[in-house]
Nucleic acid binder design. Structure first.
Lengths: 141, 141
DNA sequence: GGTATATTGTTTGTATGCAAGAAAAATGCG
DNA sequence: CGCATTTTTCTTGCATACAAACAATATACC
């Protein structure tokens, strides 16, 4: 078995290819791939705590702090103190952020199809199933 | 379709899970996941130019420079000027590096099996085939 | 109530990863 | 030959990503 065939290597390259594709999709909105993905999650559920968001997007809290910093600087999200737990932070979309997040959210489905267009629908279903199986039951989900 | 099911997100998470697994495997040798992967490639073919290595591991030259810097500082690889093209750099394993690279190279196959142990052999074959299909025909391979 | 412990986020430091540009050497074309 | 272009690598700047340490707050236990 060549190193080229190493699953860790191949998954990293597949991820990089996906990130590049997604990056190009969200670049017109002035955000990066990771920022765009966070916005897509926020479009589904707004006003979540930093910890809650972190567990859903499976990112280290330190990483999330940086991404939220930049989204906040761009005027797309706001940090608000949680009323019942003053340690916690609620992250909410601004008006501008909600608009952008909605548009980005709408890109997810078509761009998924576009990225996987060289798989047949049946292959795509199998691929997604196996991918979920590989990810499941691991640390951070 | 939920953002959780977005292929870009899932591939990123699968890659992160793979990298974490690989990182734990190579940590005893005092190298990071990326450094370990470079060493595994070098164990297969030594004394390659920086560009040649970069195209095989599909990394930006800026990224590779940093990784080689750190491997060099750890005394595992050496940069040598190419005799026939003085722009080019040959990257070679040191004696210590060759020993470490060999041991890491030997981990690839068993750790691939370990990482994919919740797939059946048949599922693994299908998964690898589809993964290759997804990656192929893209920029950087 | 008062202190030990746990939780929530941020900070700091290190390591990728890429884009853009710079430096050095080789190549090509007049 | 002489100069523009290309190739090869490095540098710089920015954005993840994580570990470890820290600050602020909440909870538990006495």
């Amino acid at each position: 078995m060549k190193s080229q065939d190493c699953i860790f290597f191949q998954l990293a390259k597949a991820s990089q290819a996906g990130t590049r594709h997604w990056q190009e999709c969200v670049a017109p909105f002035g955000v990066t791939a990771a920022q765009g993905m966070i916005l897509a999650f926020l479009a589904e559920e707004d006003d979540v705590t930093s910890g809650g968001l972190g567990s859903r997007v499976q990112l280290d809290s330190a990483t999330l702090t940086g991404i939220i910093d930049r989204l906040s600087r761009a005027g797309l999200v706001e940090r608000k103190r949680h009323p019942e737990d003053r340690r916690a932070i609620r992250i909410g979309l601004t008006v501008k952020g909600r608009s952008v997040a909605g548009k980005i959210r709408a890109l997810v489905e078509p761009e998924n199809r576009s990225f996987l267009s060289n798989l047949t629908p049946e292959e795509e279903m199998i691929f997604r199933t196996l991918l979920r199986k590989v990810i499941s039951r691991r640390k951070y989900q």
